[in-house]
């Protein structure tokens, strides 16, 4: 069984792209974030660590209930301020700064929980959730640098392009105007290296965890790494070649589906005959 320190170290390596993006984008968004909301939400995982263990699983549900009540109070106040004037102290500002604060706070929570996660599956889930939020912020920064725009203009551009690409996806089957696919990212090279490190860290995290590892199986793991890398790269090359056609996403879909079918076919349970007494 690997130690807790090794597990946290692997988590850190796996989360390195998300951490870099967070650190890189935060200064750009700092002026447009409601810090109070950010701190109130981001402090939740720390609170979860500090409360007695039997209450730790209740921290997030309680926080969610409080947040929902605050939203309801805010809505009531906004609908009829003269009647619900006493709800003014509970209302939260429904502005972009609040939404960015929530976005960054959630990303912080996903990274924090992912770093401390003991299960590989949970760690991977938190990683994808944090990257999902952070990469949109990165695309806004990229738009600012690409077209020398202000923050709000870059934000409008990116959201418009996103909506347009979803329209293309559902109507035509491809996505042409994705910001992250078309804009120059300042930290592209660093992210390339970190994604490689993250992928390897995830694989070894799964290998080393889940009830111990066997050194003699490293050869089998290396085979899986090699075969998986070849197949993943090939499929990406095909996907890239068929960009801007209606088959772009279908190719990925077929590839994934074929893999699941292959897994299912080879996983057929063999029947064991009932053994007889000698």
């Amino acid at each position: 069984m690997e130690s807790r320190a090794l597990g946290t170290g692997l988590n850190l390596l796996a989360f390195s792209p998300a951490i870099l993006i967070y650190v890189y984008t935060f200064p750009y968004f700092y002026a447009n974030i409601n810090l109070a909301v950010l701190v109130l939400i981001a402090v939740l995982p720390v609170v979860k660590l500090l409360v007695p263990k039997r209450y730790s699983s209740s921290v997030y549900p309680v926080a969610l209930i409080i947040a929902m009540l605050l939203v309801i109070a805010t809505l009531f106040y906004l609908i009829n301020p003269s009647r619900y004037y006493y709800l003014e102290i509970f209302s939260i500002p429904l502005a972009l700064s609040t939404f960015f604060a929530i976005d960054f706070a959630f990303a912080f929570i996903f990274i924090f929980e992912g770093l401390l996660s003991k299960r590989s599956s949970r760690m991977i889930g938190y990683l994808f959730l944090s990257l999902g939020t952070m990469l949109y912020e990165l695309s806004i920064i990229a738009a600012m640098h690409e077209f020398s725009l202000t923050f709000m203009n870059a934000l409008s551009l990116v959201f418009s392009l996103e909506i347009l690409s979803y329209y293309e996806l559902f109507v035509y089957g491809y996505q042409k105007f994705l910001p992250m696919a078309n804009f120059q990212i300042q930290i592209n090279q660093e992210l390339l290296v970190l994604f490689i490190i993250s992928t390897i860290a995830i694989v070894f995290s799964i290998y080393l965890r889940e009830n111990g590892h066997q050194r003699e199986r490293l050869g089998d793991l290396a085979y899986s790494l090699f075969a998986g890398s070849i197949m993943g790269t090939l499929l990406f090359a095909v996907y890239d070649y068929f960009s801007y056609t209606q088959y772009q996403l279908s190719i990925i879909g077929f590839g994934v589906l074929a893999t699941f079918v292959a897994i299912s076919r080879t996983s057929r349970k063999e029947k064991n005959r009932k053994p007889k007494i000698k």
């Binding site: 990257l131 992928t199 899986s224 790494l225 080879t266």
Partner: peptide, 25 residues
């Protein structure tokens, strides 16, 4: 795929096929 960042797509494709290769082999 919805985000469209190439390195992210490649990383996840490789990860998916590594796990699948491990299971199939």
């Amino acid at each position: 795929l919805f985000i469209g960042y190439d390195y992210y797509i490649v990383a996840l494709m490789i990860l998916f096929f590594v796990a699948a290769s491990d299971i199939i082999s």
